[in-house]
Amino acid sequence: MDAPETLTVHLRVKRYNPEVDRRPHWQELTVEGLEPTDRVLDVLHRAKWFHDGTLSFRRSCAHGVCGSDAMVVNGANALACQVLLSEVGTDVTVEAIRGLPVIKDLVVDMRPFFAQYRSVLPWLVAGDDPGYRERRQSPEERARFDDTTKCILCAACTTSCPVFWGNSGYVGPAAIVQAHRFLFDSRDEGGADRLDVLNERSGVWRCRTAFNCTNACPRGIKVTSAIQEVKRKIFSDRV
């Protein structure tokens, strides 16, 4: 059996330590011993372990579930653990997701993102007491919001949005997706409060349907479509 093909990756990574650097700078590294089936996250691991231990990035599960390693890979938002070298080639450019303050290198401050997430009341609001029973729902009712249950809060969508880059007050695609998940849930009763938040100037009306969010979502959620459904829900709302 032949030895597996090994790749040498030319990695460009945007480094920034706000406590030391006046502005971000690009670092170039040559990382060897990789395979086409390795991921960008593997490149970053090798860079950190064998070249420069000061490189900072987040990753937890490393398998596309936790959403902690969203970053800009060759110009597009993605999870580093989901992008194979066979897809992006051996010239890999990596930088932090845009629109959130950089803490260090590829690590951004997610607090503004989660504050916007919390603003849409992303939990089931149901005033009744069902007792020791489930709140039942038909398969059709469950299917109505199935797409938006897939969100892992990685922020790839929100930080790909040109409106969010310019206006950090915009609630952002991820928060709207989370609101959609409950707005179209037959068991939920908090829709009025949620729609009030989303109907504000910083809510859904800031969306220009640029579709960056839909392209960026690593879970394949139809984000722009979900936002449109929320807009229509507000528009068709009656007393």
Partner: peptide, 21 residues
């Protein structure tokens, strides 16, 4: 079932559309 927690009376609803809508 009542929409508001604790069985409080549901508040009066105004049409939701505003200038941005």
């Amino acid at each position: 079932r009542p929409a508001v927690a604790g069985g409080a009376p549901a508040r009066a609803r105004r049409p939701r559309q505003n200038f941005e809508t």
